[in-house]
């Protein structure tokens, strides 16, 4: 058997994947890219219009709001999940009692869908029945928890729900990192008399950087593609205050029947992901 022939089963095993990558991913990408340069509406056409779709896209209020929102959401959501997730992982790593129970609780919401999360938090934010009403009922009558009904705050309600849902996953990944730290590092810091909290701030994050990076990449992918949560919780409202790019694409596809706009917006999303996620990740891997 020639070496080439011996490796044939590997190629055969991978054929479905290769087929999928080439046909679906490759074809889909090219098709979307091409369509974004045409004047396609309900049906795709080949009427080349240059960058007109992109010009319209960036002139659109909805798209501008969507871009600002996804940036704001992304920063707060990723930052919040990482910070809270790290704090929880550290807390779980202190040899506490009931560690399994606490970990299960923190990880529980990660098993839910964004649809479920959205419905629950919409209910909690409901001004007439939700937390606001309950707290007022207890006597604090000026208490406000109506973020979903106000344009300036609705996006923060989404962030809160997102953090509730996604923190657990980040926590588990970082906990795995903490468990891998050399015990001698802890001994050394104890001899030096450095308080544990300072070690957790100054020393440990750098040591579990790969885990933090993994968590950050997963979270940023979630943030950029965020769609279900918005649809269920706010539907993009009040007004257009919680529009996001993924929803813009979907609306253009299925409600406005504007293929040109949808594909242009999708292409921009793809570019943004390549720049924001792919590039640092590739650099990180190279550095290793």
């Amino acid at each position: 058997m020639t070496p080439r022939l011996r490796k044939l089963p590997a190629v055969i095993a991978m054929t479905p994947t290769i087929f999928f990558v080439v046909v679906v991913i490759g074809f889909g990408l090219l098709w979307t890219l091409w369509t974004s340069f045409t004047s396609s509406k309900l049906l795709p056409n080949n009427d080349f219009v240059g960058l007109a779709q992109y010009a319209r896209l960036f002139a659109s209020d909805n798209w501008q709001v969507a871009c600002v929102n996804v940036a704001l959401f992304g920063v707060l959501f990723i930052g919040g999940c990482l910070a809270l997730g790290y704090a929880l992982a550290v807390a779980l790593d202190q040899g506490i009692r009931f560690e399994d129970a606490f970990r299960t609780i923190f990880l529980m919401s990660a098993s839910l869908s964004f649809v479920v999360t959205g419905i629950v938090w919409q209910w909690l934010f409901d001004p007439t029945f939700g937390i606001q009403a309950a707290v007022r009922d207890w006597g604090w009558t000026s208490f406000r928890f109506d973020w979903l009904t106000r344009e300036e705050t609705a996006i923060f309600a989404l962030v809160g729900a997102g953090i509730w849902q996604a923190t657990g996953m980040g926590m588990v990944i970082m906990l795995a990192g903490l468990r891998g730290i050399d015990q001698d590092i802890w001994n050394a810091t104890r001899i030096d008399g450095i308080p544990a909290w300072r070690v957790y701030i100054h020393v440990i994050p750098a040591m579990i950087r790969p885990m933090i990076a993994t968590a950050a990449v997963l979270l940023s992918l979630t943030a950029i593609k965020i769609y279900d949560l918005v649809v269920v919780m706010t539907g993009g409202g009040p007004g257009i205050s919680t529009e996001v790019p993924a929803k813009y694409v979907m609306d253009m596809l299925f409600q406005r029947n504007n293929l040109g706009q949808a594909t242009a917006a999708a292409t921009i999303m793809l570019l943004a992901i390549c720049l924001l996620v792919g590039l640092p990740w590739a650099l990180l891997r190279r550095a290793k």
Binding site: D182, D184, N187, I191, G193, V203, M207
Partner: peptide, 20 residues
């Protein structure tokens, strides 16, 4: 007493240096 209050210095097999 806590390790830091024992007037000791210690060197470990795995060095335990702060990598960053």
């Amino acid at each position: 007493a806590e390790p830091k209050d024992r007037d000791i210095g210690m060197v470990f097999q795995s060095y335990a240096l702060y990598p960053q």
